[in-house]
Nucleic acid binder design. Structure first.
Length: 823
RNA sequence: GCCGAGAUGGCGGAAUGGUAGACGCUCCGGUCUCAAAAACCGGUGGCCGCAAGGCCGUGCGGGUUCGAAUCCCGCUCUCGGUACCA
């Protein structure tokens, strides 16, 4: 320790931070105890993928914040669980392994070790005894078990369909993983459509509950909104139109519409190019054009669909259908603005009431009938109007309000058996199979005589073989398909020869239940111990980036609901409270990334300033939920502050008695600060908590000459240290021990305050004339406002503005302000 | 296009109807030093003024109020989400 003068030392964090990190871990300070009389608090960070790039200070923004909250909660007396684990399966790990020519089963542990080292050097207080890794058999064994649970409950099924294929990932993607037609991992890679048989989870069975219970979550509004939009519920009706082919054979075309009230305006129908009835209804004279259109749509639909204001295209089939309400024959067209994947893949087109249909009708000169009049007729009558209003051209419904007509028309549909009320969701089932190596094998065997056979629970895990060649092929088959030892397996049912499923599970399956595993991370009898889960879950606070708004957060809610229905958990929402930490940008304002060479690592900052300065700066620079930009200059402020805290705790030059009024002032400062910091910690507003602590530090420094060595002084310094402890755990621990304490400061109780002492004895009352500030008066708190008003009127600064004017009224707010209104 | 969030000094930000700019960064001046760095002390929204002090000021325009960064109406810009969902 560098001693500078008369026993005082200099703040050199590098000399002691490591020492405390090691000691905390040896003593198991942060181990969560299963079951306790204390209130439990389960705080979880989103499951991170341990990238080979390691952590940068952007990650620290999240992890330091949750760590501060965790440490605060412990001092408040909660039994806290704050675990950490690794979302180690999946494409990023596999791609990285391929790039480095190291198999993922060797590369991942290396990366994990580096992540742990980086988290430790920041003084983050995880309970490492609960560490989990989704790519290890004792974890994915239970991921497979949960797949089987889905299978048993009829929620896992195989289906054929047009799927999104990313040529770079060389695998199928779920809908949620396609952004604007591009792969979510390769933002310049357009996805392609291929027809494949895949495994799905029936998440749509839960669409309604997933939507409804959003209303009861304490989540950021925009995340709730994004989920709501994703689920995309719409209500209306299913209606069947009768169509005829050239031979006069009738075929029903089922459509979904949100506006059954506009049915009298349905002047044509549109089928999506993939619709099965297209081939049937197309007449010979139109067949060539229709077939050509279908091929063209299949080939370029995704690229074309991206051009923003693309003109609609389509061709007539030559077939016709009957509008069941007007009884008129209407033409059936094919157009790619109707998607096979939504609703029924067919629509009734109402050009008078729908902008898209209107645009199409205009282009191809199809009839347009307005059936709903706007409340105030404005534009030309051939214009489209999609709102609600009064019914016209609608037979018996003429003159009715369109909303009333809607329910009556639905009733008529049902009565005539040509349709019924219906609800549609935009969300589709979750495609979970991936044609890649690095994931949990799907525990299924295909048997020639028994068909699809689940692997018995007692035979789990289906081990992922340690392949030397794990690169994905070009043929859409998993590398596992090339390993005969893996593929060939006896049928669990009949013992005959079978083939294993060679696709692996989407990583989002792994992360859909990890929060449960932390409750009993080493359980070898079940995915989780139900008693432990009953104690710890649901999460008290869940923190992560907004980029998982739809995918992970939807999937893990779905899993929880399935587990609840299976009687395995007793709650239906895993995370009633969720927070998104803001994003940290590099000093150049861009996103921090290795490829942009603008990464700032916690290692380099901690080496230069110490972990506490890093932590303090990260929480101080911007609100926790707000974005930030790393400013290499700004960190000096925190380092100076901690240096001042250090100095305050150095041996007093002398011993003295409490001196008034300074002792009283200090007392009020401390109580006031405890109140502010407690409130800020509770609401995770760490930036203002640091401000308050800096103010207390400054006050102590100012009062030092009068109070140093006194009882009040010692109490003030100890209070400061306990309040700073969650933010800067190392320096406070070091100083705490230097003050003679044996036990860790992190085992101290959070200080309490007396509300009466959080207010100053003297208050500043603001004197305004017509709302403009003219003077300030210092008066004892609680002074009668009548007397303050008199003093205000007597003030030399106030008088010039009052003299010669008539006082209309005087507004007073006790201990705050006097506003003299003159004319 | 639609939905959402936001705009406060040179910078990060504070204040959610009552002293705008807390707390920091930067910069300027001072102390210490042979000197520099570090540290410490003081100043730092703009304009006018020697000063006392005054005027202006929270994206823009209006409104409500004794009083508006804060509430209401209209607009501009920025960021995020979404994209033919019938």
């Amino acid at each position: 320790m560098a001693i500078i003068e008369n026993g005082r030392t200099k703040y050199i964090p590098q000399q002691f931070e490591r020492k405390w990190q090691d000691r905390w871990e040896e003593e198991g300070l942060y181990r969560a105890q299963d079951f306790s009389d204390k209130p439990k608090y389960y705080l979880l960070d989103f499951f991170p993928y341990p990238s080979g790039d390691g952590l940068h200070v952007g990650h620290s923004k999240q992890y330091v914040g949750t760590d501060v909250a965790t440490r605060f909660r412990r001092m408040r007396g909660d039994n806290v669980m704050h675990p950490m684990g690794w979302d180690a399966f999946g494409l990023p790990a596999e791609n990285e392994a391929i790039l480095q020519q190291i198999p993922p089963y060797e590369n991942v542990p290396k990366n994990v070790a580096n992540f742990k080292r980086q988290l430790r050097l920041q003084g983050i207080s995880y309970d490492w005894s609960r560490e989990i890794n989704s790519s290890e058999p004792d974890y994915y064994r239970w991921t497979q078990w949960l797949f089987l649970l889905m299978f048993k409950r009829g929620l896992a099924y195989r289906g054929i369909g047009m799927q999104w294929w990313c040529p770079q990932c060389k695998t199928i993607l779920a809908n949620e993983q396609v952004e604007n037609g591009y792969c979510w991992r390769h933002h310049d890679q357009l996805v392609e459509k291929v027809a494949l048989e895949q495994w799905y989870f029936r998440i749509t069975d839960y669409a309604e509950e997933l939507l409804e219970s959003l209303n009861h979550l304490s989540w950021p509004e925009r995340i709730i909104l994004m989920q709501r939009n994703w689920i995309g519920k719409s209500t209306g009706a299913d209606i069947t139109f009768q169509a005829r082919d050239a031979q006069g054979v009738e075929y029903p075309i089922r459509v979904f519409t949100t506006r059954p009230d506009t049915i009298y305006g349905a002047t044509f129908m549109v089928l999506s190019p993939e619709h099965p009835l297209v081939d049937v209804l197309t007449t010979e004279e139109h067949r060539a054009r229709v077939t050509q259109y279908q091929q063209q749509a299949a080939r370029q639909s995704e690229i074309e669909r991206l051009s923003a204001e693309r003109e609609k295209t389509g061709v007539p089939t030559g077939g016709h259908a009957i509008n069941p309400f007007t009884n008129k024959e209407i033409p059936v067209w094919v157009a790619d603005y109707v998607l096979m994947s939504y609703g029924t893949g067919a629509i009734m087109a109402v050009p008078g009431g729908d902008e898209r249909d209107w645009e199409f009708a205009k282009k191809y000169s199809l009839p347009i009938v307005r059936v709903v009049e706007p409340p105030s007729p404005t534009e030309g009558s051939d214009d489209v109007y999609a709102g609600i209003g009064v019914m016209v051209n609608s037979g018996p419904y003429e003159g009715m309000q369109s909303e009333d007509a809607k329910s009556r028309i639905i009733a008529e549909l049902e009565q005539r058996s040509v349709g019924h009320a219906a609800t549609n969701y935009r969300m589709r089932d979750w495609l979970v199979s991936r044609q890649r190596y690095w994931g949990a094998p799907i525990p299924i065997v295909y048997c020639e005589s028994c068909g699809i056979v689940p692997v018995p629970e007692e035979d789990l895990p289906v081990l992922l073989p340690t392949l030397e060649h794990f690169e994905p092929g070009e043929d859409g088959r998993s590398p596992l398909a090339l390993d005969p030892d893996f593929v060939n397996a006896p049928c669990p049912k009949c013992g005959g020869s079978g083939r294993r499923e060679t696709d692996t599970l989407d990583t989002f399956v792994d992360s859909s239940w990890y929060y449960l595993r932390f409750c009993s991370p080493h359980d070898d009898q079940a995915p989780f111990d139900r008693t432990a889960v009953r104690y710890w879950c649901p999460l008290d606070l869940y923190v992560g980036g907004a980029e998982h708004a739809v995918m992970h957060l939807l999937y893990f809610r779905f899993f929880t609901k399935v587990l609840a229905d299976a009687g395995l958990v007793e709650f239906r929402e895993p995370a009633p409270r969720l927070l998104n930490q803001g994003t940290m940008h590099a000093p150049d304002g861009k996103r921090m990334s290795k490829s942009k060479h603008n990464v700032i690592t916690p290692d380099s900052v901690a080496e230069q300033f110490g972990a506490d300065t890093l932590r303090g700066y990260i929480v101080f620079m911007s609100p926790y939920t707000g974005d930030a930009q790393w400013d290499p200059q700004g960190i000096n402020g925190i380092h100076r502050w901690l240096g001042r805290v250090w100095d305050l705790c150095q041996k007093p030059a002398r011993k003295s008695a409490d001196r008034e009024p300074q002792a009283e002032e200090l007392k009020r400062w401390v109580h006031k600060t405890i109140k502010r910091v407690t409130a800020d910690m509770e609401s995770l507003e760490f930036n203002t908590a640091v401000s308050a602590l800096m103010e207390l530090t400054n006050a102590l420094q100012r009062l030092r000459p009068a109070l140093e060595g006194s009882e009040a002084w010692g109490w003030g310094v100890r209070s400061l240290l306990t309040l700073v402890a969650p933010i800067a755990p190392h320096i406070t621990e070091e100083l705490w021990h230097s003050l003679g304490h044996q036990r860790s400061i992190h085992l101290e109780s959070w200080p309490t305050y007396d509300d009466a002492l959080t207010l100053d004895e003297v208050v500043t009352v603001v004197i305004q004339v017509n709302g403009k500030l003219r003077d300030r008066l210092e008066v004892p708190r609680g002074t009668e406002m009548q007397s303050v008003q008199e003093q205000a009127l007597a003030s030399k600064r106030v008088q010039p503005y009052v003299e010669g004017n008539q006082i209309v009224k005087v507004i007073t707010v006790p201990d705050k302000l006097v506003n003299i209104v003159v004319r």
